[in-house]
Design a protein around this nucleic acid. Structure first.
Lengths: 216, 216
DNA sequence: TTTATATCGGTATGTCAATAGCGATATTTT
DNA sequence: AAAATATCGCTATTGACATACCGATATAAA
């Protein structure tokens, strides 16, 4: 049931490492902007408040050889991590469900950093279809299969109400989507080969509210 | 560096279990609504697509004794998990940063399920202060300390731009907040006893885009 | 030129959670 | 009343990741 690397890849990166890469990347970008030519794992760990050994191992997994007493070559490390994340090439995505959350994501500027651009948005409600939100025109659900195929889009962002979660996921899969960024609370069932990444706010909140309430 | 249970509690629940509890809870609620009086771990596992042993262990940790061949008493199990999550009592929170994301969270209905209500919202921009969004009036940052103390609020939701992340977190901590739900990309540094839960979209997206791009 | 030191790179250990296996027990069926 | 069965609850085993340790090496200082 867990997310596994479906294919055994030559250099399988640990999942936690991948999750930390965006954090490192921001730090590295800042250091490059500050004029650094070499990145020391110790400095990165210090800046990010991480264990120094952990940072060293993570950076080492990028595959760029570092030099003792200097660190890793900044540009090469930056490029390697960016490539590992698949952020070196622009990725197009479609967004399904233009409610308040979908609206917010359409307006979110930060995705440029990750080379993600939302190419199209879809909604079932006739009241919303046809409107242009943050520069993206909202289309009817019926247009989804054709458009996904024509633009060869591999990533779907799912921001529909829970009840519509699974049906919409099925439509995305049928259209040829390879990965779903799932903002609903539903555990999606998808065929092998399609990757689902859940962003369940309730799960995140659970940890907080448990800890706070348990405190006394 | 990892989130540890600060105090050794009598029954320390594993963090992954806590994260799964909201998922179980929704499932249990549905089954109760469907008229079930007993909850079998096998059925829950089947419905959620989880391993049956995992579900059994998670449900067992709630502390409610189950009966062979029947399962766990539905109502009691529901109550126990709700209590473990701290969702049995209403929790008030303040939201800092009414941008597009803050806006979306203010309008999100799902929080009622988790007994979370956003009691107040704050923003630094004079253009937004004074407006009422989704029924919540936006106040100036200066009002934060007084209001948090007066309402005895323990949870803060941080939806400001990255640059303002740490300063605003400091203000929340100074006002007496116990937990921060952090939607910025900044690793917050907070004193011991304050819990931070990060919701970094970039980290979540990293797993997806890595997997998709690695596929070929 | 020699010595000191910071940093990398690999190996070993520990910890936590997921999985597997097995016995105990209440309900149902015969 | 006896047998069959589903489910709980406990105890290993496994595996993945974080942590700790130690040697190698290039730079800097003496």
């Amino acid at each position: 049931m867990n997310e596994k690397n479906q294919l055994a890849r030559p250099f399988a990166l640990p999942l936690p490492t991948i999750r930390r890469y965006p954090v490192y990347l921001r730090c590295i970008n800042e250091m490059i902007a500050a004029g650094e030519t070499h990145i020391s794992s110790a400095v990165v760990a210090e800046k990010l408040g991480l264990d120094s050994v952990l940072a060293r191992k993570d950076l080492a997994m990028a595959g760029v050889p570092g030099k003792p007493r200097r660190g890793y070559p900044a540009r090469e490390l930056q490029a390697a991590i960016t490539a590992a994340l698949g952020w070196d090439n622009s990725t197009d995505a479609v967004l399904v469900g233009v409610g308040s959350l979908g609206n917010a994501l359409l307006g979110y500027r930060g995705f440029e950093e990750q080379s993600l651009s939302i190419a199209a948005a879809f909604d079932a409600s006739p009241e919303i279809v046809g409107k242009t939100i943050h520069g993206v025109k909202v289309r009817p659900m019926g247009d989804l299969p054709r458009l996904v195929k024509r633009l060869n889009i591999r990533l779907g962002i799912l921001t529909v109400p829970n009840a519509a979660g699974q049906p919409c996921a099925d439509k995305l899969v049928a259209a040829g989507i390879r990965g779903i960024w799932n903002f609903t609370s539903v555990r999606l069932s998808v065929p092998d080969g399609v990757i689902v990444q859940n962003v369940d706010l309730a799960q995140s909140l659970a940890v907080l509210s448990h800890a706070i309430s348990a405190k006394r």
